[in-house]
Design a protein around this nucleic acid. Structure first.
Lengths: 235, 235
DNA sequence: GTCGTCGTGACCAATATGACCGCAAGAGTG
DNA sequence: CACTCTTGCGGTCATATTGGTCACGACGAC
């Protein structure tokens, strides 16, 4: 029985086997309910409209861009025009830049490139669930910061790139250490464990925190400036 | 396509003075060109169509949501339907959550709440410029990581500047606690709940009170100096 | 050489602590 | 009953303490 706060998902995919695979992936994700599957753009629009009329609207669409009748972007635009209140995650094998740009313009919240692993899939859905939860628990936003936070929650944590001043090996070592410890780790502990300086340790920890890969929380209670603790977060 | 590296911006705003102010702000931002101003939704759509036809398309629209003829979200949807390739930054005084959700769905890349400072404005535009640059320098995306990075660059939180003596993390924790309790909270309770000292708790509570985010009322009846109570106020 | 990465040390910032001050309740005194 | 004193608790301030921040220099790779 789908609860009220479950996210109802429509899968739009013309290849039956792929659609089934996506549905199987979806079933492993808590908080999501598979509300249906559509093989064409027209069918998707019809199902969305019916669901909205029947009082059990679709919250999220996993939309393949390559459909037999319409392009996924066209379907997305029509969804917007019809004022159907749902979010869209684009799934495509196409790596065309114009499609990515168009997807952003069409209000796509996430973009998955086929083929993808379950881990990637789960990460995107978890990120979306966080976004959905944040917007659901308030009826009004009170400040710019609230809006920024909502937008920010759509970020995917994982892809860690290397800006200037950071080396791959060091980053790997820090990441490894964080993954090994389930307990929060302070910059000083990283310093001691890896034999690098406190400044360097902080450089990498801060970078990971900015990327969303680790959680940064201040620790109080002791005199002096509060110490930041860093925790690796799996989702 | 005669693409320049400058980002061509259309300002959509019915209040002439405000439109002028936005234009002035825009002029201070390097990399952006003020391509025109529209006072109504219809005029905006016309200018966008004309610009696309003339070979100098608009890249970005600063769209006020409150327009005399159409709602900004409607204009956005029509832009999508007309397949006009441009991004939209929403500007609004309305804090309705539905508008925020609708804005995300309509492919709005940033959301500014009026009134805003130049710093906030600049931050949003800088974020967008980064996104635009990332998508511009490649003709094809090569991996999921590339797409994630592009999406993430749209959703980076704004670095808020705090007065001296206050830390972002601590302020967030105090704010969170106040939002959670509908009952008035005393400084002592904040101390116990967060594990911070009374002095620190008071510094943040006073800051929030000065900002108008919380209400400060003295409580009598108990021996000793009257205790200040702080209540989060949701508008 | 030049660029990129890391360490060093001085300086800055955020917090806890504790002594002191101020305010109100309630007891004590006339 | 009125005035004063005691008492208790929160606000205020100065200071110690600790971690964060920044600029620059060292060192290795190309």
């Amino acid at each position: 029985m789908p609860e009220q706060d479950e996210i109802r998902v429509l899968i739009v995919e013309d290849e039956p086997l792929t659609a089934e695979a996506h549905a199987a992936y979806l079933q492993r994700m808590p908080g999501f309910t598979h509300a249906g599957t559509a093989g064409t753009g027209q069918a998707a629009l019809r199902q969305l409209t019916d669901a909205a009329a029947s009082g059990a609207p679709i919250d999220l669409v996993l939309m393949d861009m390559n459909l037999p009748d319409l392009h996924g972007l066209d379907v997305s635009r029509r969804v917007r025009t019809a004022n159907l209140d749902c979010d869209i995650i684009a799934i495509t094998a196409m790596r065309d830049l114009q499609v990515v740009r168009g997807a952003v313009a069409a209000g796509v919240v996430q973009y998955l490139i086929k083929p993808f692993t379950y881990a990637t899939f789960a990460q995107k859905l978890t990120t979306y669930r966080e976004f959905h939860r944040q917007l659901g628990e308030r009826s009004r936003v009170t400040s710019q910061a609230d809006v920024d936070q909502a937008f920010n929650s759509l970020r995917t944590p994982s892809p860690v790139t290397l800006p200037k001043g950071l080396a791959e090996g060091t980053l790997a070592a820090v990441t490894e250490l964080l993954k090994a410890n389930s307990e929060p780790v302070s910059a000083t502990e990283v310093t001691e464990a890896l034999g690098i300086s406190r400044v360097t340790a902080r450089r990498y920890l801060e970078h990971l925190a900015d990327d969303g890969a680790v959680l940064r929380t201040p620790r109080y209670g002791t005199p002096g400036r509060p110490e930041n603790e860093y925790t690796w977060r799996r989702d």
